[in-house]
Design a binder for these strands. Structure first.
Lengths: 117, 117
DNA sequence: TACTCATATTCCCATATGTGCATACGAGTA
DNA sequence: TACTCGTATGCACATATGGGAATATGAGTA
């Protein structure tokens, strides 16, 4: 339980957890949306994975991460955060960017791959 | 928001926050129930106070702390924890000791003071 | 004023943590 | 096999953090 709180106690981790609570995302999408350095995001995701809070799946060249649906507590806390989002503008911005994520992932080939589908 | 999660990410802080979610308590009661050293508890409570999460009130020689009722997010998280308590036996034990707290505060004069009332 | 007792603070130490950078890995492909 | 590109890992560094012991503070009281 303290582990979950610890993960959420860091702004970068909180942002990533929040974004993943919305939909599954790959590393380059998270980089594009948050603007955080890629190694940092990979490290954060590996911590999440070590604690069994996310699962990963490779699709083409991309590693997609999603919340482990068995992490009830994490999921409920994140969904609960939605109602307190105005106290955290950065998360609101992330949510906005997530809606237009195609505009933020031009540094990898995922964009054109998506457009091809 | 991250501040709240950070507070709850430490076992000692989590225990104290949980106990205070049940009822207002003074430092010596928290010492008695948790077995944690008094300076540690005072430090934790001062952190809580700095973040506006608790309020304090002196009664006789004792400083009583309670959750700030305006800390909605903290309060909701703590009440939500109740439903996941079995995953954290230590909190269950604390809850038990809280029910019989008179048995755990014999190192200060609060006990006899209470019995006098 | 001196004393008691509950609580608060300070200091020091070892350890943990986050960060940036460089680089390694690994799957697909030419 | 060599190359690309997305992702993962390792290292070094500064900083943050928790813990324990000693001590300070402060209110009440004799």
């Amino acid at each position: 339980m303290t582990q979950i709180f610890k993960l959420l106690s860091d702004e970068s981790r909180l942002r990533i957890a929040y974004l993943l609570s919305k939909e599954e995302l790959c590393v380059c999408e998270l980089v594009g949306i948050t603007g955080l350095p890629q190694p940092k995001i990979s490290k954060i995701l590996s911590k999440f994975r070590d604690l069994g809070l996310v699962t990963d799946e490779r699709k083409d060249k991309f590693m997609f991460y999603r919340l482990n649906q068995e992490s009830h507590m994490l999921i409920e806390i994140l969904s609960y955060m939605e109602s307190h989002l105005t106290t955290y503008p950065l998360l609101v911005e992330d949510r906005e960017r997530l809606l237009h994520k195609e505009d933020h992932i031009d540094k990898c080939t995922l964009k054109s791959l998506r457009q091809a589908n």
